[in-house]
């Protein structure tokens, strides 16, 4: 079984209040390393057999239409 991973992130210019909340929580727990946090989504899509270039292309189409909203988000697709 192959796996295709789609990572979806808000565009840099779009406010990410969840990421900001996480960034604010980290130092309260003693983690002082973060200057910024952005929160995204990860989809793991399982397919039969090894991942093919055609499947990657199909998933890219699906990401454009459904998995991500190109108005506010960017995405990357890769086989894993």
């Amino acid at each position: 079984m192959g796996k295709i991973v789609v990572d979806v992130m808000l565009k840099p210019e779009i406010l990410d209040p969840q990421g900001k909340a996480v960034a604010a929580a980290l130092p309260r727990l003693g983690f002082s390393f973060a200057t910024d946090v952005r929160q995204g989504k990860r989809f793991e899509i399982t397919v039969d057999g090894d991942v093919t270039a055609a499947q990657i292309a199909e998933v890219e189409k699906a990401a454009e239409v459904l998995l991500a909203n190109p108005v506010i988000e960017t995405f990357t697709v890769r086989a894993e």
């Binding site: 779009i14 406010l15 209040p17 909340a21 108005v71």
Partner: peptide, 17 residues
């Protein structure tokens, strides 16, 4: 309507969450 592209833009999480 925004997701359907009948209107532009998108609605995101309230800034204070």
């Amino acid at each position: 309507l925004c997701e359907a592209h009948l209107l532009p833009g998108a609605l995101t999480r309230n800034h204070e969450l």
